[in-house]
């Protein structure tokens, strides 16, 4: 089954075409990596998929339904979760509350005005389960703003998992993390394989080739190739355009 189908997505900023008729399909349970040099338009693509930037042309289908014109919160409620290139958490909230809020978003109305939210056991239990999955259960009570960079990345993934998404967009989840943390997050992403569809943007080529089922190469807003990691590694066009520049 196709979780995400991108069809002819096009976006220009002035004269600059940042997305040029991008098309690809993501099957359920697969990790689809998008790689490409800096400025290729990867983050702009993620923004269009998540809904914070509207494309000029083309369509985005999620589980067969057109979501091209849906705003960000509506897409999230349909099961689309994302991490941010620059981590976006609620720094003044506890780690647990960051995740509990994501559970709250999909469990009943939030227009409840008197009962204390922090005392809702169902929310907290599910939040703890997500934190356990990413290995942050031990620091659930800390203020999220005091976490290390890598821990914040893990927290973002815990928040995303708490949404029980069917589609997850990861925008450079390994960027800026130490070797140890990167390995841990890599294992975490690998453990999600088969459970939901993941679009992964990442600069760490070793991680990409280890994790991805399929890889698309984005250069100057165009997808120049899509295929399995082996196919991409052997593609001469890709080597010339991109992989040749870095030494992968």
């Amino acid at each position: 089954m196709t979780v995400l189908s991108v069809q002819g997505l096009t976006k220009s900023f002035g004269a600059l075409k940042v997305s040029d008729a991008i098309s690809f399909d993501l099957r359920a349970g697969e990790i689809h990596a998008i790689i490409g040099p800096n400025g290729a338009g990867k983050t702009t693509l993620i923004h269009q998929l998540s809904g914070s930037i509207r494309p000029d042309a083309g369509r985005i289908l999620m589980e067969g339904r057109d979501i091209t014109r849906l705003p960000v919160p509506a897409r999230a409620r349909r099961g689309l979760a994302r991490s941010f290139q620059i981590t976006a958490i609620l720094p003044g909230f506890s780690v647990l509350e960051n995740v509990a809020l994501a559970v709250q978003a999909r469990s009943g109305s939030s227009f409840r005005f008197f009962r204390r939210a922090a005392a809702e056991r169902a929310l907290n239990e599910q939040a703890r389960a997500s934190l356990g999955a990413v290995g942050l259960a031990g620091i659930a009570g800390r203020a999220a703003g005091t976490l290390s960079h890598g821990e914040k990345r893990q927290l973002e993934i815990a928040i995303a998992l708490a949404m029980r998404p069917r589609l997850l967009l990861l925008d450079e989840p390994l960027a800026g993390t130490g070797q140890h943390e990167a390995a841990r997050i890599g294992r975490l992403i690998a453990s999600l394989k088969g459970q939901l569809g993941i679009v992964l943007i990442e600069h760490d080529m070793a991680a990409v080739f280890a994790l991805a089922d399929r890889i698309s190469v984005l250069v100057h807003g165009r997808l120049i190739a899509t295929g399995s990691p082996t196919e991409i590694r052997q593609n001469s066009q890709v080597r010339a355009a991109y992989l040749g520049e870095s030494e992968c």
């Binding site: 998540s50 914070s52 705003p71 960000v72 919160p73 509506a74 999230a76 409620r77 979760a81 994302r82 941010f84 976006a88 958490i89 609620l90 720094p91 003044g92 909230f93 509350e97 809020l101 994501a102 709250q104 978003a105 999909r106 109305s109 939030s110 227009f111 409840r112 005005f113 008197f114 009962r115 204390r116 939210a117 922090a118 809702e120 928040i159 949404m163």
Partner: peptide, 28 residues
């Protein structure tokens, strides 16, 4: 005090902390 600690209040405080994050988890 009750209002700010309720589900509603938690969402309101969340938008103070990080609006983009709140939208990404499904809150307008």
């Amino acid at each position: 005090r009750a209002l700010t600690r309720s589900r509603f209040g938690r969402v309101l405080s969340g938008t103070r902390e990080n609006e983009a994050r709140m939208q990404a988890i499904g809150f307008s």
